[in-house]
Design a protein around this nucleic acid. Structure first.
Length: 1091
RNA sequence: GCGCGGGUGGCUUAGUCGGUUAGAGCACCCGGCUGAUAACCGGGAGGUCGCAGGUUCAAGUCCUGCCUCGCGCACCA
């Protein structure tokens, strides 16, 4: 037997913290999982956050959506286990530690000691773990934080090694170069994110250089903003479809600034479109040439000693590249293989020599040019130009055509402020280009929310997929498990055991290695210390890289289970996962790396559904970020409105994939509107249920015993729950929740409870009271279950008090498909018809009628305001004109409208008149341009009734167009001169027009009733001011000196309503120590005494 | 520069297939109602639906261009 106890005032924060304690004690989370042990699994994968930053409100949003779906699926009977995870490797961790220890270069780190540095990283990773844990628990994100996967753990790293070996064995892993922004000062290359931090506008010299053709007395002009790359030039790229011009210098230009030039008669080749931009000389065009015709021509190297030709046949020739444009420069791109990404790719494609002319320290290497060797490249711009000008007799005959300063954004080291160099680094790659088709295929099978992220942003990315540069020249990360000897022979190690075997083998071959125990630390520098042996007996050293930390997280689906070393079953049953959810910024991050790893390792997709969340912006619309300092602390809201309101606000503020402007005021509004209202509805029910010892289990109230109001709210609940569920299955959580909130505030609180209040005041047992209590009970229990996935606190308190059980192991009101035999999580979108069978009966007619009744009640208030008649003064009669039969609601309407009697007027024309409006959709196709004129004529026609009958008889033609009955809509409006209003119910063809008319005549009887209402209201208000108990009796005195007559029955009614045991009405003047008020000009005085 | 998504009263936003008077909430003003809650009801003020063209009888909605914000990519000779 469950009897609710009284609810009391709401203190959301206290309620939530108390529940957290209860959940901990009862292990409610675990229970909710255990109770579904036999259910079909629904696999969720947690994207691991990094705990070396403080959690902000934007993290709460992501966790709210993760939690919502997991809780919902759990209630649907699925087994939803949620393993937590932590991302613990990577550059951010290193940078944090570098800052703290003031180690701003690789050299400094190595001096400090790699082991000590990595120890510091290992520790730093957990800086904010407790903050994360507290936030996670407080917001009630249910995830297993006690057994999380951690990317730095040996088991995890070992799985990553295993995955790499799979790739290696499939020849998907290779060693090459990648051109990266590189800082010679810190010896570090940067990820795009860091590069973005350091863009600065700088003015630098750019140069136009002449490249002399070998078998032709002409030069090709090329432009570069980085003169330091010119010694490395090995090719010139032209657009095959670009038109070039061969011009001969006719005469000297008028003005010439800077160095460089050309002699009269000299021939230059450049894009025709850019001649005006580039050339300063007067020239004659000798010939127009297609780019493709230039391809293959040889030219003389600028710095003949800088780069050896090797076996390249294409070095120092003109090459074709379709990305060459004529938007700037000369339409010819100087190509230095090692110092530009396009250059490098082109060089690899056509076989240009790949030699560095610049060292890792940023200096020219020896042998480039006597005046440059050993110098820092960025300070050599002038020297390079001088060399190009050379020792020629005139500047004009040198190789420099022109110099020109150039203003552009250039990346700088965000730590040292030095310009970065694009520099080809040794690097390891995953051959993603080889599996592109599979990636696209797998992506097609993913259900994306919103779909345009998958098809658009992500699909675009995949269609342009490039090989994944997965190695980093760093210290703190999963080490690349590849060992290599001097001849380039390689071994990829896929497990600790394999490492031990290889170490033993090497030791046998005579190498000395440290111990390699079972729990060997799979990090640098420990693994660096092992020397393995190659087939031909040579020492193999580990490639000195760590993995991109995104590789780690991409391995999460299997590495979290230490696959394939442990628990194979867990992995097999949980891959691919059913659901992941992260911010849209993970598109190229985790969403990609998961798919990249699963495709290359398992030839499988990694996830079936992906919810991609919009960014969280601050109130000004700026992205929340640490550097801006605009991060909202979730605790500001947890400690004020509570986690329920915060979560509900997040979900209702907009579509999950849209950017969310986080508005603190919105959380407050959600609290006041949604949760306070829900609580008060619950409180109303619980207080009376407690008073009456109501027990839902030991009494019943059949559907037939329920009042129309009960059946209406039950039907409304049916409709709302169905739409809510439908919203969930379509990812429209925001629409679902808004609709539910509207139901609670509008339908439940403002109409059902308001209209039902008196039913529960009845102190005697009655079938009607019981019907109301059962109805409230059912509504509240269902609501709790619907709300629980989104905001799990208050509804649990309510559910527990009403049913004795937690809501979190309760069944979803629309069924539990997860617990049916043979179910799978793929059945996201179950049979709605079957699901709604579990809800209370739906009655569309009833909903429609009640909508009309409510509108009529509101209309009555409007009529009174127009007629300046106060609400409490009754009207003798109200007429309802037209519309459906509302007979059963007349009592209700009498109360709402404050009229003595309601009657139905069947003679429509007594209060209504016809108004015609054009149905544009029907008439416009025939009337074309005249449609508006015709509409005007119809609307302004002086006799609408006559016009209508003309139309009906087919004898109406306006402006040559026959007007048919289907061309017009017939509307009815109230006639002028009555205290009346007309409303429209329904839409289009179904629309009906109902008028309400109120009788404005006063009688002594009505005035007396109105007066009684006013007096009652004053006394009630006084009772409230005096803080009297609802049950308390009072004594009342009233002075009605110049008031209308107050009949005896109304006097008695006042006494009853106000619970007055003694009441005295006097016609004398009131004493001075009384309170008084005004009713239609009469002063009424009164006094209330506590008995 | 390229791609994606936005721009609707002071603020947050809804707006389906192009259709008649652009709908709500917050805040504001006036009035009402209340043993009904930080509530509720009625009314009011507040909108060139980013700008400019175009298609159409009809455009917040479709098309083109531009401006602007956010994000991603590229910043490159």
């Amino acid at each position: 037997m469950v009897r609710p106890s009284p609810a009391g005032e709401l203190d959301a924060v206290a309620l939530e913290t108390a529940l957290l304690e209860t959940w901990k004690n009862e292990q409610t989370f675990q229970q909710s999982i255990d109770s579904n042990r036999t259910g079909a699994p629904f696999i969720f994968l947690e994207g691991p956050p990094t705990a070396n930053g403080k959690p902000g409100i934007h993290h709460v949003v992501a966790r709210a959506y993760k939690d919502l779906v997991c809780r919902w699926k759990t209630m649907e009977g699925f087994l939803v286990e949620r393993k937590g995870g932590w991302d613990t490797h990577g550059l951010p961790v290193e940078i944090e530690v570098q800052k703290r220890l003031d180690l701003m270069s690789n050299e400094a780190i190595e001096q400090f000691g790699m082991q000590a540095f990595n120890d510091a990283c290992r520790e730093s990773v957990w800086t904010y773990e407790s903050a994360w844990r507290e936030m996670t628990e407080r917001m009630a994100y249910w995830v297993d934080l006690d057994n999380p996967y951690v990317t730095l753990h040996n088991d995890y790293v070992e799985s990553c090694w295993w995955a790499l070996k799979q790739m290696f064995d499939k020849d998907l892993l290779y060693r090459g170069h990648k051109v990266l922004p590189y800082c010679p000062q810190t010896g570090t290359s940067y990820s795009s994110h860091e590069v973005a931090l350091g863009y600065k506008e700088v003015e630098e010299p750019s140069v136009y250089v002449k490249f002399k053709l070998v078998d032709d007395d002409a030069s090709i002009l090329a432009w570069t903003t980085t003169p330091w790359t010119l010694p490395g030039n090995v090719g010139l790229a032209v657009g095959p479809d670009v038109t070039y011009a061969r011009c001969r210098v006719r005469e000297e230009p008028e003005g010439w600034q800077g160095r460089g030039g050309a002699s009269v008669g000299e021939e230059l080749i450049l894009a025709k479109d850019l001649m005006g931009e580039v050339l300063r000389h007067h020239v004659d065009i000798i010939e127009e040439i297609q780019g493709s015709e230039l391809v293959g021509k040889s030219y003389e190297p600028l710095f003949p000693d800088a780069v050896p030709r090797g076996d390249s046949s294409t070095a120092w020739t003109v090459l074709s590249a379709d990305w060459v444009t004529t938007t700037d420069g000369t339409g010819v791109v100087h190509t230095a293989v090692m110092y530009g990404e396009d250059d490098y790719n082109l060089g690899m494609e056509v076989g240009l020599p790949a030699y560095h002319t610049v060292s890792m320290e940023g200096n020219f290497v020896n042998g480039v040019h006597p005046e440059l060797d050993g110098r820092y490249v960025k300070s050599c711009d002038d020297t390079v130009m001088d060399i190009l000008i050379g020792r020629s007799e005139t500047i004009a005959s040198g190789l420099l055509y022109r110099e020109k300063s150039y203003l552009h954004d250039y990346p700088h080291c965000w730590r040292t402020d030095h310009p970065l160099l694009y520099y080809a680094m040794d690097s390891w790659f995953v051959r993603m280009t080889a599996v592109k088709e599979r990636l696209l295929e797998f992506n097609d099978g993913v259900e994306w929310a919103p779909d345009w992220v998958g098809e658009g942003r992500f699909g675009e990315w995949l269609r342009n997929v490039k090989d994944w540069a997965i190695s980093r020249e760093r210290y703190w990360g999963t080490p690349l498990p590849v060992w290599r000897d001097e001849d380039g022979n390689m071994k990829c190690i896929g497990s600790i055991q394999e490492l031990q075997t290889e170490v033993a083998k090497a030791n046998e071959a005579g190498f000395e290695n440290p111990e390699c125990p079972d729990d060997v630390d799979l990090h640098r520098p420990v693994v660096d210390a092992f020397t393995l042996v190659s087939e031909n007996g040579k020492p193999m050293h580990r490639e000195p890289f760590v993995m991109d930390c995104w590789f780690d997280s991409g391995c999460a689906p299997f590495a979290q289970w230490h696959h394939p070393f442990d628990e194979n079953k867990t992995f097999d049953a949980s891959f691919p996962v059913d659901y992941i959810c992260e911010g849209v910024d993970q598109t190229r991050g985790w969403f990609y790396t998961l798919l990249a790893v699963s495709t290359t390792v398992f030839d499988s997709p990694a996830y079936k559904r992906c919810l991609s969340l919009g960014l969280i912006l601050d109130a000004e619309g700026k992205k929340m970020s640490k550097s801006r300092g605009n991060i909202v602390d979730p605790w500001d809201h947890f400690n004020r409105e509570g986690a329920d309101a915060t979560r509900w606000y997040m979900v209702t503020a907009g579509a999950p994939w849209n950017p969310l402007k986080f508005d603190s005021n919105g959380v407050r509004e959600t609290y006041a509107k949604m949760f306070l209202t829900l609580w008060n509805v619950y409180r109303f029910h619980a207080d009376y249920a407690a008073l009456d010892q109501f027990d839902p289990a030991s009494s019943t109230s059949s559907y037939e015993q329920r009042s129309r109001l009960d059946r209406w709210i039950l039907s409304k609940l049916h409709t709302t729950a169905k739409a809510y569920h439908d919203g969930f299955t379509n990812w429209n959580f925001h629409k679902a929740c808004r609709e539910l909130e509207d139901f609670i505030v509008n339908d439940l609180s403002n109409w059902y409870v308001r209209r039902s209040r008196r039913r529960l005041w009845d102190e005697a047992e009655s079938g009607d009271k019981l019907a109301c209590q059962h109805t409230l009970h059912e509504i509240l229990v269902t609501l709790c279950r619907l709300i629980a996935p989104v905001s799990p606190f208050m509804v649990d308190t309510i559910h527990r008090n009403l049913t004795g059980e937690t809501v979190h192991t309760a069944a979803w009101p629309l069924g539990t498909p997860g617990s049916t035999e043979g179910a799978t999580a793929d059945a996201w979108d179950e049979d709605l018809a079957a699901a709604t069978a579990q809800l209370p009966p739906h009655d569309a007619g009833l909903e429609h009628e009640m909508e009309l009744v409510r509108e009529l009640a509101e209309t009555g208030r409007r009529i009174r305001i127009d007629a300046q008649r106060r609400q409490r003064l009754p009207c003798a009669e109200g007429w309802i004109v037209a519309g459906p039969n509302l007979e059963p609601y007349h009592d209700l309407l009498c109360e709402e409208l404050n009229v003595e009697n309601i009657s139905v007027e069947t003679d429509l024309d007594r209060f209504q008149q016809v108004e015609l409006a054009v149905n544009f959709r029907a008439l416009a196709p025939r009337a074309k341009g005249d449609v508006n004129a015709i509409a005007g004529q119809i609307k302004n026609h002086s006799d609408q009734e006559a016009l209508l009958s003309d139309i009906r008889s087919g004898s109406c033609t306006i402006m040559g167009v026959d007007i048919l009955e289907s061309d017009v809509e017939v509307r009815r409006a109230e006639r002028e001169g009555y205290a009346a209003a007309t409303i429209t119910v329904g839409e289009n063809d179904e629309a009906s027009h109902v008028s309400l008319v109120l009788d404005m005549q006063d009688t002594p009887h009505l005035l007396s009733k109105g007066l009684a209402r006013d007096i009652t209201r004053r006394i009630q208000s006084k009772r409230k001011d005096m803080n009297l108990d609802i049950e308390a009796m009072i004594d009342v005195e009233v002075w009605l000196h110049d008031a209308p007559e107050l009949f005896e029955e109304d006097q008695a009614w006042i006494a009853k309503e106000t619970r007055a045991s003694g009441i005295v009405f006097s016609l004398e003047s009131a004493p001075s120590d009384t309170e008084s008020f005004d009713v239609d000009g009469a002063q009424i005085a009164y006094r209330v005494l506590n008995v």
